[in-house]
Amino acid sequence: MNNSVPALKLLKPEWPAPPRVKAAVTTREGGISQGSYHSLNLGDHVGDDPKCVLANRVLLGKLLPNEPIWLKQVHGVKVSTPDARLDEADAVVTNKPNEVLAIMTADCLPVLFTSESGDVIGAAHAGWRGLCNGVLENTVKEMQALSGASSAKNMLAWFGPAIGPTAFEVGTDVLEAYQDAKISFPNQSFVAVPNKPGKYLANLYLLARSRLESIGLNQIYGGHYCTVNQEEQFFSYRRDGVTGRFASLIWISQSK
């Protein structure tokens, strides 16, 4: 069976991260899952055969220095740290070499972080609720605590594959949630859908950028994918309903 498994196809973030910081994003290609989960599904909570999920994680693990820290993501704002590893969290940070941070998504926005020196890294799961409630700000705050940094200006962020601004239709409730939040956002973050009163196209990438810029993090990269429209590469819950999850990964390589 192993001879019939195609090679994993990974995406490498294009950002000026320091050399010791490694990052990658899995695609849906290269695993053994079948049907709606074809083929590299890494989510163990979406109805796929557990044996297939485990086999897929083993395949991925061969490319990593350690087993990833898999979070139970709940669309919240809690951050798992080296001193407080949480079972349920939507972000994770570390300053320890070879600890692999992982965020699983299938439309929500994965955001990877690093300091300019590469001494601390983070990863966050940012759906519209998490973005609105401050998951990115909380992640940066915990990174600052680990590194002793007084500001976020020396940190970098990379936006991974998420549902794009032409595909993410939301209702008035989502717009009102952002209007009620304290942080302002660009007007073009929500574009009214013609002939659909109360419906808007939301731009997760733009909303995330505005949240990070509001705390002084301006070195932002990525944000050019659409999980809904790039069906061959990515799982999409909005598109398919029953589907798998891909992972965005980051770690600090062990110094020699």
Rank of each mutant, 00 (worst) to 15 (best):
M1Q: 13
S4M: 12
V5D: 05
A7Y: 01
K9V: 13
L10D: 11
L11E: 09
K12T: 13
K12H: 15
K12N: 15
P19M: 04
R20G: 00
R20T: 00
V25K: 01
R28E: 07
E29Q: 15
G31A: 11
Y37C: 11
H38V: 14
H38N: 13
S39Q: 14
L40Q: 10
N41R: 08
H45D: 15
V46H: 12
P50V: 10
K51H: 11
N56E: 13
L59P: 09
L59N: 11
L60V: 10
G61T: 07
K62A: 15
E67M: 03
Q73C: 13
H75W: 12
V77R: 05
A84D: 10
A91S: 13
A91M: 02
V93Y: 01
V93S: 04
T94D: 00
N95D: 14
N98T: 02
P110L: 02
L112C: 12
T114C: 06
T114E: 05
E116N: 13
I121G: 03
A126P: 02
G127Q: 02
W128G: 00
R129A: 10
L131S: 00
N133K: 14
G134D: 08
G134T: 03
L136I: 00
N138P: 01
V140C: 04
K141T: 07
K141P: 00
M143C: 02
G148H: 05
M155F: 15
A162L: 03
I163A: 14
P165I: 08
A167R: 11
G171W: 06
T172G: 03
D173Y: 12
D180W: 05
D180S: 14
I183Q: 08
I183R: 00
I183E: 10
N187A: 14
N195I: 01
P197C: 11
L206R: 08
S210K: 04
N218H: 14
Q219A: 15
Y221E: 11
G222D: 13
Y225K: 12
C226H: 08
E232L: 08
Q233K: 15
S236T: 12
T243Y: 04
G244K: 09
G244L: 10
S248L: 11
L249A: 11
S255H: 05
